[in-house]
Design a protein around this nucleic acid. Structure first.
Lengths: 182, 182
DNA sequence: AAGCTAAAGTTCGAAGTTGAACTCTACACC
DNA sequence: GGTGTAGAGTTCAACTTCGAACTTTAGCTT
């Protein structure tokens, strides 16, 4: 097998060098930021995935739990609201809720004051799962940022929010699905 | 229908405030960084998705084109290598390549020197698509970072790579799928 | 009041992904 | 040289998602 050298994923530095070779007018500074961001995000999702799996749920389900908790007590939202917040189609939301009802994480009932609507509500078990996931997540996040001084953290948070505001203004979620795509 | 107030996605600030309400020992500084990162990434993927869609390809296909270009001339990789780099199962890779062969973006042929292997190679059309996507992406990225001074960009790039190194060390891709999950 | 229109959810079929089983080739060992 | 083992890639069934069609209810309009 002396044929193919160790063809593993290129490092960030190799990747940037390769892009510059193939695409002359590339700003390496910009590329570094964008690529690091994207890789970092992927790794973080993997980490979250391992943690939620340890709790017997999926990242997808964790997203639903988070949205419900964020809504505040009594932790209720309609399927459409949930779908909007998670960037899913209503169809996908229907199935996701089916599953989670089956697992006892949420309940689904018709809104008697407006019978077109459905209310999805967090169960105690769902809330408990969220809490455990949250505990694990914060440990991981704290570890991730361990090497950053408090000032660095402040600056990083500021810069990222600045960038976020810029995309959000350019992309006012109008109309469009916020599908994840990656 | 004056019943449900405008239940739209909470802003980053609202989200952090809500989490603090529900989970006492949450570091708002950490949460801000992590949430901004994740939202930013989602928005960026939406933006890339619109651009690649304008070229008649998907983000998924763009990822394959990128991996092949990164491999350097003659732009060849095996399905397993591709799968590893993209964080997909070999099964998914098979189907993805099927599609892309049908669209003329890549070719697939057996490696005559080792007939177990398959070589996926970028076509000229595939390379051209990559180039156009790259041009659009860099315009978007430059616009995204427009408000950041060169020093800010440098610092941001450094900090992000530092974080990336930290997760990569803790998570040496060993064994595990690098599935995206969100 | 009858009918229109809009909105909420669900159902259905097509597309993409996954994990597991399977096939085929290359290489090592006795 | 035959057998075994490991690796590459594909096939298959189950699951998740999407887009579009559809059902049901609420609120308008005349």
């Amino acid at each position: 097998m002396g044929d193919t050298p160790g063809v593993s994923e290129p490092t960030l530095e190799e990747q940037i060098a390769a892009y510059q070779r193939e695409f002359r007018d590339l700003d390496p500074q910009v590329e570094k930021i964008v690529s690091a961001l994207s890789r970092l995000n992927r790794r973080m999702n993997v980490a979250y995935g391992r943690q939620t799996a340890a709790l017997g749920i999926s990242n997808a389900e964790w997203e639903v739990l988070k949205a419900l908790v964020l809504a505040g007590a009594p932790y209720r939202l309609g399927p459409s609201d949930l779908a909007k917040r998670l960037g899913l189609t209503p169809a996908a939301m229907t199935h996701r809720i089916d599953r989670m009802v089956g697992e006892g994480l949420v309940t689904r009932e018709r809104d008697e004051s407006n019978r077109v609507r459905v209310i999805v509500e967090l169960t105690d078990e769902g809330r408990e799962k969220w809490l455990e996931a949250m505990r694990m997540a914060t440990v991981f996040e704290e570890d991730l940022l361990q090497d950053l001084s408090s000032e660095d953290r402040g600056v990083l948070g500021e810069v990222l929010t600045r960038l976020l505001r810029r995309v959000e203004d350019a992309q006012p979620d109008a109309g469009g699905r916020l599908s994840d795509l990656d």
